[in-house]
Amino acid sequence: MKPAPFIYHDPATPEEAVALLSQHEDAKVLAGGQSLMPMLNMRFVLPDHVIDLNGVAGISGVVDSGSTLEIGAMTRQRDLVRDPAVNAKIPIMPEALEHVGHFQTRNRGTIGGSLCHLDPSAELPCLMAAYDAVLSAHGPDGVRDIPFTEWPLAYMIPTLGPDELLTKITVPYWSANHGYGFVEFARRHGDFALIAVAALLETDGDTILQASISIGGAGVRPVRLAEAEAALVGGNIGADAFKAAAEVARGIDAMSDAYVSSAYRQRLAATLVERALIKAGERAKGSA
């Protein structure tokens, strides 16, 4: 239960970190450490080099650009919960973060770390899918922007080159009147969700103008319910519309494992989509 020996690096800038990643073959990037440290302790990963981002300047904090929040990859989950701009513009984020581990792990855990670790049932990737967030990766040739739809490559693998570093997440936020709901089911509080759902609704009072539904935990990446979103837009907020969306969720591809069958995940998805939409509908104020 102790990490195997490695060489520790503590770069001060993103450029230094990227240079270290380019130089060293078998390097792991250490962000908040709430996933990598257990894996090091249990020797699931045995890197020759560990590159610690905790001293890297300029990659944490939240900036409101007027239409998006630009969130530094090393912003800690606890700081997101407390951030006034996050609470005002993306109020679903603190609601989702309540489900991420415990307050002691949120004190260290970062948004970038969670997105790079990319656990299939993690809350933050599910939320970033709902918002079509854009992820900025620093590489040897500069910065490239990656839409979230292209971010998950495979099971727990983001589309990030071996010498690239996630530095910023840009989240386009919705109007002040939008409604939101984040719900999940887990066996114990703080556990990874069996199914998590993020729902966003924009209305003019009655009619739905924009809808986003994202489901985490069903497959290797979060799923957007595009068909249900399209069906909701133009209709009214109401139990029938939400039930119809839930029926779409029942048909998603869902994995099965030793504990939970695919059918049970589909059933959970239907129930939780309906609950998330009801919450979002109640909170949508209408922009009329």
Partner: peptide, 8 residues
Amino acid sequence: AVRSCLML
């Protein structure tokens, strides 16, 4: 409050 097993 942090986990001392998850910090170096």
